[in-house]
Amino acid sequence: MGTTAPTRSETRSNQGNAFLRTFKLLARNKIGLLGLTVFLLMTLVSFVGPLVIPPETQAHVDQIYQPPSAAHPLGTDFQGREMWKMVIHGGRDVLIVAFLAGIITTLVAVTFGAVSAFFGGWVDSLMMAITDIWLTIPRFLLLVVVATLVRLENVWMLALFLAFFGWPGLARQIRSQVLSLKKREYVEAAQLLDLGSAHIIFREMLPNMMSYIVIAMINAMTSAIYSQTGLVFLGVVPFGNNWGVMFSLAYAKNAIYNPNAAASLLVPMGAIILFQISLVMLSRSLEEIFNPRLRRGV
C-alpha cells in the first residue's frame, strides 16, 4: 500500500499541472492556438451575444435579400432580417447539442470500451460483437427514420440520440487504448495488489488516458455537428433559429440562384465550417502535443 500512495499523489499533482502545461504547449503550437482562439471566440459570442443583442423577431419586408453592405454587414435573409444578428443567435443550440452529444458519446464509449477491454474474455467478445453490429448498420439512415418517429424537440433528446448513434467507433478506440495500458507496469502492479477493478480503471487508467479522451470528445463534437446539420437539412428536427435551420431555409427558398441572397446561405454555412475547422485544428494539435511520435513520425 505504502508503495502505491506516492505514485497516486504524483499522478494527481501531475494532473493539476497538466492543464497548465497543455495550455502552454498549445500556446506554442500556431495551429492549435488559432483553433482554440476561434473555438473560444465563437462559443463566447454564441452564449453571451444573445444576452447583449436583441433577437430579430420582426420581418422587414422592404429589406429582403440585401447583399452585405455598410448598413447590413452580413446582408439580410428572405424576411429581411439582419444576418449578423441571426448568426449570433443561431449558434447556441448547435453548440449545446455538440457539447452534450460530445460528452455523452465519450461517456458511453469510455465506459463500454474500458469495461470490454478490462474484463476481456467473453464479456469483451460480446461487447465487441455489439459494437461491430452497430458500426456496420447505416446509422445515419436509421437515425433519420427514428427521428421521424420520435420527435427530437429539445437539445437533450437530440444530443442523446446523436450519442446513441455515435459511440461505437470511439468505443473501439478506447478499448485498444485500455488494452495497451493494461500491459503497463503500474496497472499490473495495481492488479497484483488487488486494488479492485473500479480503482484500477478510474484511478490508474483513466488519468493516463485523459488526453486521449479529451481529443476523442472534440472529435465526437465534430461528428455531432456533422449529423445534426444533415438532420436539420432534412427537416426531421424541428428547431427554432440555428445555423443549420438558417442555411436549410435559405436553400429551400432557392437562395442559391439569387446573387443577392447568397449571403443568407453562405453566412450560416461559413459559421458551421469555421467552427468545425477550429475543432479539427484543436484536436489535431492536442494530438501532436500528447503524442509526439506522430509529429516526429518515428
Binding site: T222, I225, T229, Y251, I273, L279, V280
Partner: peptide, 13 residues
C-alpha cells in the same frame, strides 16, 4: 482533416 469535418450537405451546396 478539415474536409472530413465539413458536412457533405455544405460541400454539395
Amino acid at each position: 482533416a478539415a474536409i472530413e469535418s465539413i458536412p457533405n450537405t455544405l460541400t454539395a451546396i
